[in-house]
Design a protein around this nucleic acid. Structure first.
Lengths: 148, 148
DNA sequence: CGATTAAACTTAACATGTAAACCAAAGGGA
DNA sequence: TCCCTTTGGTTTACATGTTAAGTTTAATCG
């Protein structure tokens, strides 16, 4: 076995801890969405579009934490499913503007109550104050640049 | 647009915040491992095996936060690459015991220094105390059950 | 002891993650 | 105006995530 002291505590732990925490939060959400045959990722995209209105794909990718190739595929699928519509931008012909449809909004409305119930349990059991702390710590971590 | 008030603050934010924080930490690690043509997931598996010695796949999956189908494929690839060896357990013929090879240990040793450098920057810039807080908060979150 | 259930994988099928190559439109500088 | 670079998207290829179904071996129950 390699000398255990050669690695720092955070090496293996932090990425795993983030994955596990994510699983706790998203597990119940995924179960809920599975009833509508929609993925966690598509749900994120719909939520972004609902909040922001018509949005170009680059911005959707940033907001929903997706890479453009993944988004491209999902957009094609979601357009076929009637959840969104797409059109080239007039000002900049490179950009594609995506808009949520009524069907997309209906899907969101359909799950709003249960989504809130799940997250209400989170706030109650975890505590609003600790949730604030966690958000702050995660946001600070995000803005680090560890490349050099 | 759907009434923004219909959703709680945490709904869209928390999963994204976890994804982004993960990206900050794993981005540099992924770049490093890409030089050896190894994925973040295989790195996690090697680290688990190096720490624990010969381990059954179920335990590896739990420790490395992977599902068994993913692990099965990776094990077949990693065995072919000569990073691990596998054998059926004597006591329980259902179990497969995986052992890291010298080549696997060599790969770990090869990246130990840079891995530590990246994570030393994390501890320095983020702060050991905040890192402790973050670990604690993530671990508490992990143990919630939001299903009911 | 036999039948049933559970556990540890494995396989298959499809969606998403990821990197690299490509394309067309926009910007910038000589 | 003509490069040249950048940007937003797409495509391709392969790895991994995820669910469901199947297989073999253990454990449990009657």
């Amino acid at each position: 076995m390699t000398d255990p002291a050669q690695f720092r505590r955070t090496d293996r732990s932090l990425p795993i801890a983030l994955l596990r925490a994510r699983e706790t939060v998203m597990g119940p959400i995924r179960e809920m969405l599975a009833q509508s045959g929609i993925s966690e990722q598509k749900w994120r995209v719909l939520r972004v579009l609902d909040e922001r209105g018509p949005t170009e794909q680059k911005v959707i990718a940033d907001e929903a934490c997706l890479l453009l190739p993944s988004l491209t595929r999902m957009m094609q699928a979601m357009e076929a499913e009637g959840l969104v519509s797409r059109a080239a931008s007039e000002e900049d012909r490179r950009r594609t503007i995506v808009t949520i449809t009524d069907a997309g909004r209906a899907l969101i409305a359909q799950h709003a109550a249960e989504s809130n119930a799940i997250l209400a349990r989170l706030e109650t059991r975890y505590g609003a104050r600790r949730l604030d702390q966690l958000f702050q710590l995660l946001d600070d971590l995000r803005h680090l640049d560890l490349d050099q």
